[in-house]
Design a protein around this nucleic acid. Structure first.
Lengths: 192, 192
DNA sequence: CTTGTACTAGAGTGATCGCTCTAGCAAAGG
DNA sequence: CCTTTGCTAGAGCGATCACTCTAGTACAAG
């Protein structure tokens, strides 16, 4: 497989560092080192500096993460409850496999910039909206009433994000299991 | 009312800045300026520097925030569903009143330090555990089965934290209303 | 070939970071 | 009175921050 372009490596390295440490704890120097890119190249590809690169990383990694929604709730799903169980179980598995480092790619940054950087805040908001739109469509496809689907989508995402927070803070997957139980109950209720 | 001690003002100022900007975007200089404290006093009261002051701010503001649980789910509550509605409605009101700045006092910091600073991670974990313990006791008091209370407590906290994230990112309280609906459904289910 | 464009490469910039250090002040104990 | 203790006060430290600047390289167009 060919080596990705310098620009792609920069975006990828930024996304990885954002996920673990957030925006302000990630230095430009650390990004270019991880990306094995020269310092000057970063400001060539992203004249807007760290902020522009950060926005690209949020959007790219956020939308890529959204692909998991189509993966877990795709066309071949026959039982929405079962898919929901698999979705949360997968999140728990990823957490333990990565020693609680690999959770939501944008949540940390989203909270950091929500009140302090309007451009980055909008980038995170766009990603969340994308997830909700995609999940809603999938839920309708699998039997949820159209007027209830966005509520369910937001509910599951909020449970997942809250579970990521508690799991990472406590270094345990117990909250994820509880989130899964609440999510399944809600899905079942709206299917009935 | 008497002016709080320098130490208390430092902790309070740190907590306020953490809530809006998180750990790494909050500088020691900004803290002492907001606290109207001399620079040297900070290192007298907190020889461990920013990290020790940060841990104190997390613990103090976290436990104070937990008092809201006893406020909303206290002895005088007769209808747990109604109390749950009031709890989430109060969170939504606080968000709009503060222009989406005043949400969870420790969530941003918790995600920032979860994988990078073990002492601070433990401080955030202790706060979350305190909330869950207190909420569980209140839920049992109001009719939830003891073996289900911790799950419900975690569920509501995760919904609240997830809602804070989506509300702040999107500058809307719509997710909080959806979280409220899911929470009420879950409370009702476990009361039946 | 020459020229132009896209990109690589890293030394060097001022600003700000967390923190250390010394000096001085206020009140209590003898 | 004098000394001690707890705290105030801020100048100054090295390190690191995001970023700028100049120079060099690779390659396509003409």
């Amino acid at each position: 497989m060919a080596k990705p372009t310098t620009r792609d490596r920069l975006v990828g390295a930024t996304a990885e560092l954002f996920r673990v440490s957030g925006y302000h704890a990630t230095s430009v120097k650390a990004i270019v080192e991880r990306a094995e890119a020269p310092f000057g190249s970063m400001y060539h590809h992203f004249p807007g500096g760290k902020e522009e690169l950060g926005a690209a990383a949020i959007t790219t990694s956020g939308l890529a993460y959204g692909d998991l929604i189509d993966l877990f709730f795709g066309d071949d799903v026959t039982d929405l409850v079962e898919a929901t169980n698999a979705f949360f179980a997968g999140a728990a598995w990823t957490l333990t496999e990565s020693d609680y480092a690999d959770a939501c790619p944008i949540a940390t940054v989203a909270l950091e910039v929500a009140s302090t950087n309007e451009d980055l805040r909008r980038a995170t908001s766009t990603v969340f909206d994308d997830w909700i739109t995609r999940a809603s469509a999938r839920f309708v496809q699998h039997g949820i009433a159209p007027d209830q689907a966005p509520r369910l989508a937001r509910g599951l995402i909020m449970l997942l994000e809250g579970a990521f927070l508690l799991c990472r803070a406590g270094r345990t997957t117990e909250p994820m299991a509880d989130a899964q139980a609440v999510a399944v109950a809600e899905v079942s209720r709206l299917l009935a």
